[in-house]
Nucleic acid binder design. Structure first.
Length: 432
RNA sequence: GUGGGUGUAGCUUAGCGGUAAAGCGUCUCUCUGUGGCAGAGAAGAUCGCGGGUUCGAAUCCCGUCACUCACCCCA
C-alpha cells in the first residue's frame, strides 16, 4: 500500500527564529552596517571578519560553571573529522581568539576592531529576540585605560545618532574585579538570605546561582528589597573606583548622557568593572539597543595570557524597530532615476548595449527587458516612481535616436543615439 | 522548560453549523508604439494538520503542529 501522499503542498520554510531579510529591510540593515562602520573607523576601529563557526571550546571554557546553560543555547555540530564546532553566539570571544592567533599583541595597543554580522542562539524566540540576529560591535583589546571604555560607549552612541536615534541614555555600572567583587557577592547573598522568606521562588534560586540578577527582579516583594541591598559601587576597591570615576568623567566630557544604574548586572564571570546598556528614550520599548562592558579576565579564562579589553555591540533588529517607529526611512542607495524601455527585437538588443554604457558612467538604470508592450513598461515605471524613461523602439532603432521622456510632465525629447551617453553625462544630476 | 494569544488566497481580512468571500497585489484584454484612470476577465485556498460531534464543520469539541507574546534566561 502506498502511503497517503501529503495532501497539502508543503512549502519550505526557515528554521524557527530565523527570517529572510527582504530588500525593503535590507535597506535598513545596509544603512546600519555601513554607517556604523564609517563611525567606528573614524574612532580608529578597523573592520574585521571572523568565521561564523568556531571551535566549541572557545565559548565553553570562558563560561565555566554555567556552561551547561550555555551549551543548550548554542548551535553545535560535529564535523566528519570529529571536530566540535559552534555557530558563534556572540562576538567577543572570537575577537579575543583572533587577537591571540594573529599576534595582535605586537600591534600598537589597544587593538581596536569593528565587526558586523549574524550570531546564533538557540533560545525561545520572542519580540525582537531571534535565533539568528545581527550585531555591529567594537572592541578595544590590550589596554586597561578607562578612556577606552568611554570611547567604546561613545562610538556606539555616535552610531545610533547617525542612524537618527538621537535621544539616548547609557545605563552604566561597575562590577568591580577579582579583588573587590567576591566580598560584595558575599554581602549581597547574606542580605538576601536574611530575607529569604519574602523573596520569590526565582530569586531563591538566584541567591545560589546568579546573585547579581537579584537586583533586577521585577517581583514586587523583591524589588522592595533592592533599595536597601548592598550596592557594588560602595564596595569597589580603590583601583576599580578610580577606573569607574574616570569613565564617567570622560563620558561627561563627551556629553554622552548616562545614568548610574546600580542594578545593572551581567550573568557571566568574565565581565569586570564597566558594564553598560544603551536605551532609546522616545519609544516605549524597554529593550536595550546595545550593551557591553569590560572583560579583563576573558583572555585568562580562555587559557591565554591576561589581556585587558572592553567592547560593546548594537542589536541591528532592535535598531530597525526603533527607526521604523520613529518613521526614519533609509534611502535606498542606487535607486534608479531612469527606466529603459525597449520595443521590438532590434531595440531590445540595442538596449543591452545602452544599459552597459550607462553602467560605465555610473548611472543606475531600471528595466524590464522581458516585457514587450510599451504600455506595460510604462506602468512599471509608474509603479516604481521613476521620473525619467528612455524609450528605445523599433522606430528609434532605425532612426538612430532615443526618446527621453519626463514622466511627470509627459514631455519627450528625441536625442541621437550617438550623442545620448554624452547628453546623459552632461546632465548627470538629473539622472543619478 | 512554563503560561497566554493567533492560524481562511502572495498580503490584509470577512464568514462563526448548510459546504468558501472581498480589498490590495499579480497576469491578460478593452488599448498592435506612449503611463498614472476606468471596465471586463484569469490565475491563486482541499479554511494549519489529525480526530470527534452532526444528515451536514472554516464554523462546535478534543488533540497536535506552527507562529506569536510573556516568564525563565540572555555570553
Amino acid at each position: 500500500m502506498p502511503k497517503k501522499a501529503a495532501t497539502k503542498k508543503e512549502v519550505p520554510t526557515t528554521p524557527k527564529g530565523m527570517h529572510d531579510v527582504l530588500p525593503a529591510d535590507m535597506a535598513y540593515v545596509n544603512l546600519i552596517t555601513k554607517e556604523s562602520k564609517r563611525v567606528a573607523e573614524f574612532y580608529g576601529f578597523g573592520h574585521i571578519e571572523t568565521p561564523h563557526l568556531e571551535k566549541t571550546d572557545l565559548f565553553l571554557r570562558p563560561l565555566g560553571d554555567t556552561s551547561e546553560v550555555v551549551e543548550k543555547q548554542m548551535y553545535s555540530l560535529r564535523t566528519r573529522g570529529g571536530d566540535r564546532l559552534t555557530l558563534r553566539p556572540e562576538g567577543t570571544a572570537p575577537l579575543m581568539r583572533a587577537y591571540y592567533q594573529n599576534g595582535m599583541a605586537s600591534w600598537p595597543q589597544p587593538v581596536k576592531l569593528f565587526y558586523a554580522g549574524s550570531f546564533y542562539r538557540h533560545e525561545s524566540p520572542q519580540a525582537l529576540r531571534f535565533r539568528e540576529f545581527r550585531q555591529v560591535g567594537v572592541e578595544a583589546i590590550g589596554d586597561d585605560d578607562a578612556i577606552n571604555d568611554a570611547l567604546v560607549i561613545r562610538t556606539l552612541v555616535s552610531s545610533l545618532q547617525v542612524f537618527g536615534v538621537k535621544e539616548i541614555t547609557v545605563n552604566i555600572n561597575s562590577l568591580g574585579d577579582k579583588t573587590c567583587r567576591p566580598g560584595y557577592h558575599k554581602e549581597l547573598v547574606n542580605y538576601y538570605k536574611k530575607h529569604e522568606e519574602k523573596i520569590c521562588r526565582d530569586c531563591r534560586r538566584r541567591v545560589k546561582e546568579n546573585p547579581l540578577r537579584l537586583l533586577d527582579c521585577k517581583e514586587e516583594a523583591c524589588a522592595a528589597l533592592v533599595g536597601n541591598a548592598p550596592q557594588m559601587v560602595d564596595h569597589l576597591c580603590e583601583e576599580c573606583k578610580k577606573h569607574f570615576s574616570e569613565v564617567i568623567e570622560f563620558l561627561d566630557e563627551m556629553q554622552t548622557p548616562y545614568f548610574l544604574d546600580s542594578h545593572l548586572a551581567r550573568g557571566f564571570d568574565y565581565y569586570t568593572r564597566t558594564i553598560f546598556e544603551i536605551f532609546e528614550n522616545d519609544t516605549e520599548d524597554k529593550t536595550a539597543l546595545g550593551a557591553g562592558g569590560r572583560y579583563d579576565d576573558l583572555g585568562e579564562l580562555m587559557g591565554a595570557k591576561k589581556v585587558p579589553a572592553v567592547g560593546g555591540a548594537l542589536g541591528v533588529e532592535r535598531i530597525i524597530n526603533v527607526l521604523k517607529k520613529k518613521g526614519i526611512k533609509p534611502r535606498a542607495d542606487a535607486k534608479p532615476r531612469i527606466f529603459l524601455i525597449q520595443l521590438g527585437p532590434e531595440a531590445r538588443k540595442k538596449s543591452l548595449t545602452l544599459m552597459e554604457e550607462l553602467r560605465k558612467i555610473g548611472v543606475p538604470v531600471a528595466q524590464s527587458l522581458s516585457r514587450d508592450s510599451l504600455r506595460s513598461q510604462l506602468n512599471i515605471v509608474n509603479k516604481l516612481e521613476i521620473p525619467v524613461a528612455i524609450i528605445l523602439g523599433q522606430k528609434e532603432a532605425l532612426d538612430g535616436t532615443v526618446g527621453l521622456r519626463n514622466m511627470e510632465t509627459g514631455v519627450q525629447e528625441t536625442l541621437s543615439f550617438d550623442k545620448f551617453i554624452g547628453t546623459i553625462k552632461a546632465r548627470l544630476k538629473e539622472f543619478s
